[in-house]
Structure formats: structure tokens, C-alpha cells
Nucleic acid binder design. Structure first.
Lengths: 214, 214
DNA sequence: CATTCGCTCCTTGGATCCAATATGGAGGTT
DNA sequence: AACCTCCATATTGGATCCAAGGAGCGAATG
């Protein structure tokens, strides 16, 4: 057992939140998680701190941890941050991407277009974008980008489940344009395309303010 | 004692790092801090997790916590992130700033120009910029900006101590232009001015690659 | 004489127990 | 009947103790 126990707990909770098993507003009781792992509450506490750092949980003294419930305005803000940060990550990444990477991106996009499952789309879309940043050597930047993706995941899910279906062709077109720019190594074009992609998604999301009520 | 003990420890360590008392590469022994506070190691562990979330410490299993030592490339990356994020924070902030705020900014800038102490300058410069974001209602954004400032603080100090003196007039001019744009409520101009301010600082920093060796 | 193996000590990771605080319900009062 | 207060209980925060892993030093050997 060279792996830290708290890390395992953190991994479990992370996938639970990202998969939608734990929803915004849900309370996380330390004892419950601890017993599920046959461990004490201490590693759970550590894990919750780690997740807090990743923006996946929030903590209030003597009240415990919850999955954060974001307002429409906050999600909008996160998307505006992504509009600025992800183009930077992509520009930093492109010079270091090789043919294997672009082939992989093409493959993912292909599967997105053939896929018909909601949950699978969320995974693939995330993988598509994060893979395009894989060449970015700026650790603080990539971890921040990941954090932003994590924090809005539940609302992405809600949106796609609601009305996202009809707009799928737009996403696919944007992804194809992005792929083209990346394959050509055209960072400037890629940045602009990506910024537009995120901005349009943000504006689209704003059309469904009731996603954030529950 | 309604205040969490771990919070006090975190506050102490944070100021210790930001003030330069703890330098990049320094190890932080839990027992040492704990005894200094007459507390057990547990709240120290929690505090270290919090600081890790803020980018002020880093953690390795069974090896303990250290103040992160950034490479020149990483600091450059952080500045590039700031170039993109802080203009957004400023634009978001400006519509909500009132006359009291601009007066306060003017006051800070005035003191910067009269001041001659290195440590005091670091404080004032930080306060100037962070105060200009005070109207920004996007919590994730402001906390991230603060985080970026924190993580480069030791290197800002080293730079100013080394050669920053001679360039002070540039900083002052930039701050004055920024102030003017803010006072006029001209978000577009303010964004552009701020971006240039950060970019020039980044390029200037890159001229001293040996700041990162020790 | 250098190198490597192994041992000891130091530091961190985890479990259990105790203290402090918020939550929810019952009962009394207006 | 509604509201407020107070108490019981559940849940988190902290202290102490024990286990596990890494670093540094010394001795033995090539």
C-alpha cells in the first residue's frame, strides 16, 4: 500500500461528483464515506480538503462539506474565465502536439458524432478539449482549466439533458473547425475558434436560467 | 473560540510566506508549527491543505510540505494567465466601483510614488490592483487572481530588490493611466492598459533568469 | 578509497477517543 | 394555534497514540 488512503477517497468522491451521483447541494457526511472505505474519518477529511482545492466541494465550519450549488451568474463567470484561459492553454499546447495527438482528437470527434448517449457525450467532449491542451507545459494553467471544467460539470449535464440535443450540429461544426486549425498548427486561428466555441456555449446556457434553481 | 484553529494556523503561514519569512524551497515541519501554536499537528495538516489550494504550499506523500519553487517558465506562465484574467476581473469590477473606491486607489498610488521602502511597495502595489477588482462579483475569478498573485510573490520581491528600482517610473505611469480609465468608467481602455501593464512586467521579469536559480 | 548495503531516527499518515457546535423536535407560553 | 425556548442528538473539530515510509549515517566489502 504505497498509495495514500486519502487519495483513494478523493478519487472516489471526485468521480461520484463528476458522474452526477452526487448532485449540487448534496451533503457529504464524513462518517458515511469513512465506513464505506473501512477507514477512519481522518483520510476523508483530507480528501475533502483536496476536493475543495479542486472546486468540487465547499466547506463550512461545524456544518460539513457539500457539493457547491452555483448560481446562473457564477456559471456564466466560469465560462467567461474559460473563454480567456483555454485559448491560452491551447496556444501553448499546439506547438507540442504530434500526429498521434491529432489522430486521437479526430478519433474522439468521430465518436462524438456517432454517439447517442448523453453521459458518454459529456465524457467525450471533456476528453476532446482536455486532450487538445495536453501539450501545454504550464501546470498551474492546466490544473486551473481542469478545475473550471469540474465545477460546471453538473450544469453541463443538466443543459445537455434538457435542450442541448438540437444544437449538437453546431458543436460538431465548431469541433471540426478547431481540429482543422490544430492540425495545421495555426494557433491564432485555433484560439479564435475556441473562444467563439466557449462563448456561444455560455450564451446558449444563459437561455436556460431554470437549470440552476433546484 | 468560534474561529477554527486550523484557520489561525493557515493565516499565520500565509503571511509568513507572503512576507518572505518562508522562502521557496523551505520545508514546513508540522510538529514545529504545531508546538508554536500549542496545538496538535492535526489543524496544521488541515491548514497545509488549505494553503495548497491557494498555491502557497505543495505536498508530497511522506515527504511533507514545502513552499513551491517555481521555474522561470512557470512564473512566465502565471503572468500570462494574469494577462488574460485580470482584465476580465477589472471589467467586471469597474461598473460597481464608486467614488470612494477611486479615491482610495488614488491615495494608494500617491503613497506608492512617495514611498521608498521595498517591502512597503510590494504591499501597496498588491493592494492597488486587488482593490481595483473589489467590485468584481465573480468569486471564483477573484480568488483565482489572488492565488496567482500569491504564487509569484517571492519572485516579485526578488525582482524588485534586484533591478526594479530603475523602472519605477514606468509602473507609476501605467498605474496613472489605469486610474484615469477606471475613474472614467472606461472598461475597454482599462482592460487594454492593464493587459499591457502585466505584459510589460512579465517581459521585464524574463530579463532576470537567475532570480529563479537559488 | 569509493561504493553499497543496512540500520536507526525523524517525519508524516492513520486510528481512536474526547470536546464543541449546529440541527431538529418537544413542550410550554402567549 | 403559532411561536419561542430549551434540550437531546447527530456531526464535525481537535488531541493523543500508534504505524509506516524516507533520509542520513556508518560499517563492511570490492
Amino acid at each position: 500500500m504505497t498509495e495514500a488512503s486519502s487519495t483513494r477517497v478523493a478519487d472516489y468522491l471526485r468521480t461520484a461528483i463528476l458522474s452526477g451521483e452526487l448532485k449540487p447541494g448534496d451533503r457529504i457526511r464524513q462518517e458515511e464515506i469513512a465506513s464505506r472505505f473501512g477507514a477512519s474519518r481522518l483520510p476523508v477529511r483530507e480528501a475533502l480538503r483536496m476536493l475543495e482545492a479542486e472546486g468540487l466541494t465547499e466547506h463550512e465550519p461545524h456544518k460539513g462539506a457539500r457539493v457547491p450549488r452555483l448560481t446562473a451568474h457564477e456559471v456564466d463567470g466560469v465560462y467567461r474565465m474559460r473563454e480567456r484561459l483555454e485559448p491560452l492553454a491551447l496556444a501553448e499546447s499546439i506547438p507540442r502536439l504530434d500526429d498521434t495527438d491529432t489522430a486521437r482528437l479526430e478519433e474522439i470527434q468521430q465518436e462524438i458524432e456517432e454517439n447517442d448517449d448523453l453521459e458518454r457525450f459529456l465524457e467525450l467532449d471533456r476528453e476532446f478539449h482536455l486532450h487538445s491542451y495536453r501539450g501545454c507545459r504550464l501546470d498551474p494553467l492546466t490544473s486551473m482549466v481542469q478545475r473550471l471544467w469540474n465545477s460546471t460539470q453538473p450544469y453541463r449535464r443538466a443543459y445537455v439533458a434538457r435542450g442541448g440535443r438540437s444544437r449538437m450540429w453546431v458543436v460538431n461544426a465548431e469541433h471540426r473547425l478547431l481540429l482543422d486549425a490544430i492540425a495545421r498548427g495555426d494557433s491564432v486561428d485555433a484560439e479564435r475558434t475556441l473562444e467563439g466555441h466557449i462563448r456561444r456555449t455560455r450564451i446558449e446556457l444563459a437561455r436556460y436560467p431554470d437549470l440552476f434553481d433546484a
